[in-house]
Computed example of a mutant assay.
Amino acid sequence: MKDTSHHDERIAEMKFFSVYPHYVTKIEKKGRTKEELHQVIEWLTGYNESKLKELIESKVTFKTFFSGATLNPNVHLIKGVICGYRVEEITNTLTQQVRYLDKLVDELAKGRKMEKIIRL
């Protein structure tokens, strides 16, 4: 397996607020809503609307964003490839959590039903 430590460090220091607008643009271009995006983020992290807004305004890193999250117990059901990596095989916990979020946003943008995205 190749060394991804530099990649992992870069992800940890990325600011959530700078990536969030890209999530919104991606899903809205495909006819989904910001409310649906927030539902997906809340399912994954436990963050409600006001906490999410606070984190965005505070310009936190992904490291901080996920350090305060209460991950859904069903995250292990998120499987598949995102950004060239199989999410269930990523060994760095934070990188895996960020890729879980990327995968869920991708599924939302692809028109997958919400019940499937949030693994009901």
Rank of each mutant, 00 (worst) to 15 (best):
E13G: 07
M14K: 05
M14Y: 04
F17C: 15
S18Q: 13
S18A: 14
V19W: 06
V19D: 10
Y20A: 14
P21D: 12
P21W: 10
Y23A: 05
Y23D: 01
T25V: 01
K26Y: 02
K26H: 01
I27A: 02
E28K: 07
E28S: 01
K30P: 04
K30T: 09
K30I: 05
G31L: 11
R32V: 07
R32E: 07
T33V: 10
E36F: 09
E36D: 12
L37E: 08
L37H: 11
L37S: 13
L37N: 13
L37A: 14
H38W: 09
Q39T: 12
Q39G: 10
Q39N: 03
I41S: 06
I41G: 08
I41M: 06
E42Y: 15
E42A: 11
W43I: 12
Y47T: 02
Y47V: 00
N48F: 11
N48A: 07
E49H: 14
S50Y: 07
S50F: 12
K51A: 15
K51Q: 15
K51Y: 14
L52P: 07
L52C: 12
K53I: 06
E54A: 09
L55P: 05
I56T: 07
S58N: 12
S58L: 11
S58I: 02
V60H: 04
V60T: 08
T61F: 06
F62V: 01
F62A: 01
T64R: 09
T64N: 02
T64M: 06
F66W: 07
S67R: 15
A69S: 15
T70M: 09
T70I: 12
L71G: 12
L71N: 11
P73K: 13
N74K: 15
N74P: 01
V75P: 03
V75R: 00
V75L: 00
V75S: 00
H76I: 03
L77T: 04
I78L: 04
K79I: 13
K79M: 11
G80D: 02
I82L: 01
G84D: 12
E88F: 05
E88S: 10
E88W: 05
E89K: 02
I90V: 14
T91P: 01
T91V: 05
T91S: 11
T91G: 11
N92M: 15
T95N: 10
T95K: 07
Q96P: 04
Q96F: 04
Q96C: 09
Q97V: 01
Q97P: 00
V98G: 04
Y100N: 04
Y100W: 06
Y100K: 03
L101V: 10
L101E: 06
K103S: 08
K103H: 01
D106M: 07
E107C: 08
E107P: 04
L108H: 03
A109W: 01
K110L: 00
R112Q: 04
R112F: 03
K113Q: 10
K113W: 06
K113V: 11
M114I: 08
E115R: 10
E115M: 08
